[in-house]
């Protein structure tokens, strides 16, 4: 059975069908949350940004005229919610928590070593992403983590496609350098006050 298009769900919601909005949220919450998680780093902040984004969607949906695809618009609202949240939190940079400590049952038996490595790598990537300048980070996350095309990312961010391509490259190089720096003893960087244990 063909899926009801987003734009049709938007129309139904505008006509008073609240279930259509719930369907939109259910369909997109994972993308929104993961986009937020990669933009803001901390799980707690990603939860807040996701909630902010969907509340903004709800408020603005009546005015959504469909000039952009719904997903494009949703990504834009989410990126903006992340920027807002990062501004609000700008004084408190991230001791990024390790995942799996709270609220989850302990692993029943020693995890396979490659699992542990993968978890560490993921944290490293997330931590490193947060040190990529925001304007590069958004492009990087949209294109390389959320798999948007250059054109879609350009529409989300409201910049020319050429800008997306060059920012994407700059962002990748920045992230690559940060990841490479983690293998060797990192050069002393007085500006970095989040200490990696």
């Amino acid at each position: 059975m063909a899926e009801v298009p987003d734009e049709e769900l938007v129309r139904r919601f505008r006509d008073g069908d609240v279930g259509a909005f719930a369907a939109l949220v259910e369909r997109h919450e994972r993308r929104v949350y993961n986009l937020a998680l990669r933009m803001v780093g901390r799980e707690e902040d990603a939860r807040d940004a996701t909630q902010d984004a969907f509340l903004a969607v709800l408020r603005k949906l009546q005015g959504f005229r469909g000039e952009a695809a719904f997903t494009t618009w949703l990504h834009r609202v989410t990126v903006n919610a992340c920027y807002d949240l990062l501004r609000r939190r700008s004084r408190a940079p991230l001791p990024l928590e390790r995942p799996s400590d709270e609220g989850r049952p302990p692993t029943p038996e020693p995890a396979a070593p490659d699992h542990a490595e993968r978890v560490d790598l993921r944290i490293d990537v997330r931590r490193a992403l947060l040190q990529v300048p925001e304007e590069f980070r958004a492009v990087l996350v949209l294109c390389d983590a959320q798999d948007l095309s250059y054109e879609q990312a350009a529409a989300v961010l409201g910049v020319p496609v050429g800008t997306v391509k060059s920012r994407l490259h700059r962002g990748r190089v920045a992230l690559g350098r940060l990841l490479a720096g983690r293998e060797r003893p990192a050069p002393a960087d007085p500006s970095e006050d989040t200490v990696t244990p």
Binding site: L140, D144, G171, R172, L175, G176, L179
Partner: peptide
């Protein structure tokens, strides 16, 4: 470096 970043994000 870019290839390395792409791989890390894909993972």
């Amino acid at each position: 470096l870019a290839r390395r970043a792409v791989q890390a994000l894909a993972d």
